[in-house]
Design a protein around this nucleic acid. Structure first.
Lengths: 148, 148
DNA sequence: AACAATTATATCGTGTGCGACATAATGTTA
DNA sequence: TAACATTATGTCGCACACGATATAATTGTT
């Protein structure tokens, strides 16, 4: 039995598990808004800046366009976004908020606080928790550079 | 525009992105072994302790049994594991390694080091990186207790 | 023992993720 | 400007995840 193959020693599993648990924590808050977690991430981008291309959205979320396209189509079905062909570059599809999509921001603004509420209080070492964003950013940028 | 709704301010997105990037990093290493990342996690558990029930596996991986069941069936198709009904409690399906599954451990033992190689060197603050496992464990245990 | 409650697993439907590939529009270059 | 490469998006297939639900086996209670 190799120690490095023990589940409990694996940082990667912690990331995998934490990510799924966080998504689960969002579910009851997003369901009333008719959003899944990835759809919510798209809404965050569009609330920041309306009308972005599929590529823009995929790049920000570190997703492939073949993941984002069907996701956006479902959001269009729900009347949250519009998908138009760009006039200048007809290859591009630009995505914008509908009135319904814009209105949702007001209802969503309390969600982040609801999710993270009490997280640091559960930490035996608050300084570890404070380091999380920095450590993850460094890890993400490292992993991104692996492919291209 | 609410600051708390900016993507870059969201710890949750970092976890979501990091988790997917890690899985992607594993792919080229696991593909030669005929494993996906969740299947690799199941193998880790069975290499630690052969013959565990579907429930045992699901609990350790923090997954639902309706995720694990089809995953195990695919692994059975590939000849990596066997699925037997428990003699004492016929409700239970116990999962064990085949010869092929056992042999794979030798080939897998170098994977963890390959993945994490260079991770801390990319960190401007190594102490942040060292805190990651502790911070994630605390977060996971917090999120687990949310449901029950 | 009879029967309700619980437990373990499985089935079904929907929504991601992503590799492989297709297609149309734009850029580039001889 | 014709031919070719590149880019942006999309389709298809497969493997998760998970809520809702079904079913069979066991447990608990009377």
């Amino acid at each position: 039995m190799y120690d490095q193959l023990k589940l409990d020693n694996q940082l990667c599993f912690r990331l995998y598990a934490a990510s799924r648990l966080v998504t689960q924590a969002y579910r009851p808050l997003l369901e009333p808004l008719g959003l899944t977690y990835p759809q919510y991430l798209v809404m965050l981008l569009l609330w920041e800046k309306d009308w972005q291309s599929v590529n823009d959205i995929a790049h920000r979320l570190l997703l492939e366009t073949n993941t984002v396209t069907p996701l956006l189509k479902r959001m269009e079905q729900e009347g949250l976004v519009k998908r138009n062909t760009d006039f200048i570059d007809k290859r591009r599809t630009i995505v914008g908020l509908t009135h319904k999509g814009k209105k949702l921001e007001e209802a969503a603004k309390t969600i982040p606080a609801c999710i993270t509420q009490g997280w640091d209080s559960g930490q035996s070492r608050p300084e570890d928790f404070a380091a999380l964003p920095r450590a993850l950013d460094a890890l993400i940028s490292k992993l991104k550079s692996n492919d291209n």
